[in-house]
Simulated scan of single mutants.
Amino acid sequence: MVQLVSPPGWPGQVRPPGAPGWEGTAVNWLLDICPPEFRGYPVLRRHEVVLARFAVLHVEACQAAVRRGLSEARSVLRDVADADTVERAIETWQRESARLIAERRAVGLVEEALRGRRFVARL
C-alpha cells in the first residue's frame, strides 16, 4: 500500500499527491489563488504545471508589492492618514506578508508535486 504524504505547508484544499483526483483539486486551488482572469486562458486550464508556474510568479509579485508597501507606507500615507491609521496599515502589510510566505511555500510544493515529486514521511 502506498502512503500518501502531504508535506508541512501543503494546502488543506488539495488532496495529497497520488490520491485519486488530486490534480483536479490542485488546479482548482491554484485558480482560486490567481487573478480571476487566469480562468479565461485555455492553456492554464489544460496544463496544470504551466498554471502552477503562473501561480508561483503571481504570489511572488504579491510579495514584492507587500515589501514595497511596507517600505514606503509611512512616507506615502503620512499626508493622507493619521499616525494610528498608518500604523494599522503597516500591521496589515505585515499580516499579508506572513500569509504570502505560507502561500508561496504551498504553491511551490504543489508545483513540485505536479512536476512529479513525491514526498516521503519523515520520522
Rank of each mutant, 00 (worst) to 15 (best):
V2P: 13
V2L: 11
V5R: 11
V5W: 08
S6I: 07
G9M: 09
G9Q: 09
G9E: 09
P11Y: 10
G12P: 13
Q13W: 12
Q13E: 15
V14D: 12
R15I: 11
P17R: 12
P17Y: 09
P17F: 10
P17W: 10
A19V: 09
P20V: 11
P20W: 04
P20H: 06
W22C: 03
G24M: 05
G24I: 04
G24Y: 06
T25I: 10
N28P: 11
L30R: 01
L31I: 10
P35D: 15
P35T: 15
P35V: 15
E37W: 15
E37G: 15
F38E: 15
R39A: 10
R39E: 12
G40V: 03
G40D: 07
P42R: 07
V43K: 02
V43D: 07
R45P: 01
R45S: 04
R46D: 15
H47D: 14
E48W: 02
V49C: 04
V49M: 02
V50Y: 07
V50F: 08
A52Q: 05
A52H: 04
R53S: 13
R53T: 14
R53E: 14
F54H: 13
A55D: 01
A55S: 11
L57E: 05
A61R: 11
A61S: 11
C62W: 07
Q63R: 13
A64C: 05
A65C: 03
R68W: 06
R68G: 04
G69M: 02
L70E: 02
L70V: 00
S71P: 00
A73K: 02
S75M: 04
L77A: 11
L77N: 09
R78T: 15
D79W: 01
D79A: 04
V80K: 07
A81N: 07
A81G: 06
D84T: 14
T85R: 15
V86S: 06
E87H: 05
E87M: 04
E87R: 08
E87V: 06
A89W: 12
A89M: 14
A89G: 09
I90P: 11
I90Q: 14
T92R: 13
Q94F: 02
R95T: 08
E96W: 02
S97D: 08
A98C: 03
R99P: 06
R104F: 06
R105N: 03
V107P: 03
V107S: 06
L109P: 00
V110M: 01
E112F: 00
E112A: 05
A113I: 05
A113Y: 02
L114H: 02
R115G: 02
G116Y: 00
F119S: 00
V120L: 04
A121W: 01
R122V: 08
L123V: 05
